[in-house]
C-alpha cells in the first residue's frame, strides 16, 4: 500500500527527522507518535505533498496512485469547514472527489457512525423505522447551520466528510482530540471495521486507542 524509506521530514529549512521508514500494508494501521513539535503532522503533510512534487524517500507518488481514495483529516480541521454551507452539505462535499458521488448513501456503517456521533439529534427518530438511514441524517443536518455547532460536533462533521469518499488509505491527524468517550468508541469501532475490510490507516495520536497498530513510528 505505502512504502516509505528514509524520508526526510523538514519544515522550511529545518530538518525535523532525517530518516523515517515504514511499510503500511492493506488492512494494517500505523501510529505516528512523538512529542509536540516533533514533526508528526509535518510527516503526514510531506506524504500528501507528494501530489505536487516527488518526495525523496517515498517509493511512489501516493496522490497519483491513491489520490481519490485517500481520506485525510488534518490537525487544523477548523480551516476546512465551509461556513456558508449547511451541515449536510459540509459532509456531502467530501464525496466530490470520488468517481461515484452517490456511493455514500450505500454506506450503512458510516450512517451508523453518524447516529452514534449525534445521539441527541438522531437517536430518538431512529426508533421509528427509517429506511434508508441517510434520509434521517439528511433531513436533520440540512436544517443545521454548521457554525452554530460546538467545536466537538464540528469535528465529527469533518470526520464524517473525510470518511465519505470511500477511502483505501485513511490519514488521520489526531482524530480523537476533542471527542467524547462514546464518540471515541464509535470511531474506534468504525476504523476497526474499515481495517477488517482491507483499508489502511496511518494516524497521529498521543494516546493509545482501541486499535492495535502493526507499527509505531516514533518521531522523537
Amino acid at each position: 500500500m505505502l512504502n516509505v524509506d528514509n524520508l526526510e521530514v523538514r519544515i522550511g529549512g529545518r530538518v525535523l527527522k532525517d530518516s523515517v521508514s515504514f511499510h503500511l500494508k492493506e488492512g494494517e494501521a500505523i501510529r505516528v507518535a512523538g512529542a509536540n513539535g516533533a514533526g508528526k503532522s509535518t510527516l503526514l503533510k510531506t506524504l500528501l505533498a507528494g501530489s505536487v512534487k516527488p518526495v525523496k524517500g517515498v517509493s511512489f507518488n501516493i496522490h497519483a496512485t491513491l489520490g481519490k481514495t485517500i481520506a485525510y483529516f488534518p490537525q487544523a480541521w477548523g480551516d476546512t469547514i465551509f461556513p456558508w454551507l449547511n451541515t449536510w452539505d459540509n459532509i456531502l462535499i467530501g464525496t466530490l472527489k470520488s468517481d461515484n458521488h452517490y456511493e455514500l448513501y450505500a454506506k450503512e456503517k458510516l450512517g451508523n457512525l453518524a447516529f452514534q456521533f449525534f445521539p441527541g439529534d438522531l437517536a430518538i427518530e431512529s426508533d421509528t423505522k427509517c429506511d434508508p438511514i441517510w434520509d434521517l441524517i439528511i433531513e436533520k443536518f440540512k436544517k443545521h447551520d454548521i457554525t452554530k455547532l460546538s467545536g466537538g460536533q464540528q469535528q465529527k462533521i469533518v470526520l464524517l466528510r473525510t470518511l465519505a469518499c470511500n477511502p483505501k488509505l485513511m490519514i488521520l491527524d489526531e482524530p480523537y482530540r476533542d471527542l467524547d468517550y462514546q464518540s471515541t468508541n464509535a470511531l474506534n469501532d468504525y476504523l476497526q471495521d474499515m481495517l477488517d475490510d482491507g483499508c489502511s490507516l496511518l494516524y497521529v495520536s498521543h494516546q493509545d486507542i482501541g486499535i492495535t497498530p502493526s507499527e509505531i513510528v516514533n518521531m522523537d
Binding site: 500528501l48 489520490g67 485525510y72 480551516d79 476546512t80
Partner: peptide, 12 residues
Amino acid sequence: KSRKAIKSALAL
C-alpha cells in the same frame, strides 16, 4: 490559507 488546507484535505 483555506485553499491550502482544503486542497490537502479534499483534493478538489
